[in-house]
Design a protein around this nucleic acid. Structure first.
Length: 269
DNA sequence: ATGTCACATATAATGTGA
């Protein structure tokens, strides 16, 4: 079973790239982040014409997540239990943003997650990011005994080698101790990151649009797939599709693909 | 090289966000 995760940075800007990706890799489930579209405007047709189901969760032009799957999801959840909200105006309601959607497919609870960026370490958004991760870890603790998969853009580089030049990142978001500790909380709650060990060569998942970062191979590893133990031991391999970052009108992130030995009971019958 | 993209809005230039 092939599960891919990709921060597409606007699904309306490049829907055909996503549809082509499904065919190119024969993807069973594609988790998208930063779709940047409200549900009513989501371009469902090209995915459905390709034979896929679309589960989307978008509230406005920001954030937005989706799960595109060959099989029809058995259960869908928007927001994870305990997910905190945010609004830049503290006088307004701190409403939850469209950063989490899940679908149960072939017995796996699969989440497409877009963790808050954090902006600057002195910004309220940074505290929001940490709160989001703490709440996520608490939810994981309740689900870690079954097959659970968190995919997406975590906006954290857990190790120094996950950025191309650590000296440029000290004091900035994505590499701070509290962010890395929060990521570790997810692991301590029962999850294992399953793609890293298969992607040592092409290890970046993100390249800034600015400063020719892709051309200079100056990237970051901030996208991951974290599986609970009952699923993690079924992982068979992982890869990034670096070709997807080349060419015109690309996302700034690269698709992250993982394979799991999960039987398709329907095909066995 | 902060110097690129994407989205929105009294559509044309600017604000927000990454």
């Amino acid at each position: 079973m092939r599960i891919a995760s990709w921060n597409i940075n606007s699904v309306r800007t490049r829907p055909q790239r996503a549809v082509d990706l499904l065919a190119k890799h024969d993807i069973d489930v594609l988790c998208l982040q930063e779709t940047k579209v409200a549900d009513a405007k989501f371009p469902r047709e090209p995915f459905e014409e390709a034979g896929y189901h679309v589960t989307c969760h978008g509230l406005n032009q920001w954030n937005g997540v989706a799960i595109v799957s060959k099989e029809e999801p058995e259960k869908v959840q928007t927001f994870f239990p305990g997910q905190p909200g945010f609004h830049k105006d503290t006088a307004k309601e701190q409403a939850r943003e469209a950063r989490a959607v899940s679908a149960r497919i072939r017995g796996i609870e699969i989440w497409s997650l877009y963790v808050p960026n954090g902006r600057e370490i002195t910004d309220r958004h940074f505290d929001y990011k940490l709160d989001f991760l703490y709440a996520l870890a608490r939810y994981v603790e309740t689900r870690a005994q079954s097959k659970l998969l968190l995919t997406g853009d975590f906006n954290i580089a857990p190790r120094d080698e996950d950025v191309w030049d650590m000296s440029l990142f000290r004091g900035k978001t994505h590499v701070t101790e509290p962010e890395r500790a929060a990521f570790q909380m997810l692991e301590e709650a029962g999850l294992e990151e399953v793609t890293r060990r298969f992607t040592e060569e092409d290890r970046w998942t993100y390249f800034d649009y600015k400063s020719l970062r892709f051309q200079k191979n100056e990237g970051m590893r901030i996208d991951f797939q974290l599986a609970s133990e009952p699923l993690a031991h079924l992982v068979q391999g992982a890869q990034v599709d670096m070709v997807e970052r080349a060419g015109d009108k690309t996302s700034d992130h690269v698709p992250l693909i993982a394979d799991f030995d999960v039987p398709d009971f329907a095909s066995v019958r």
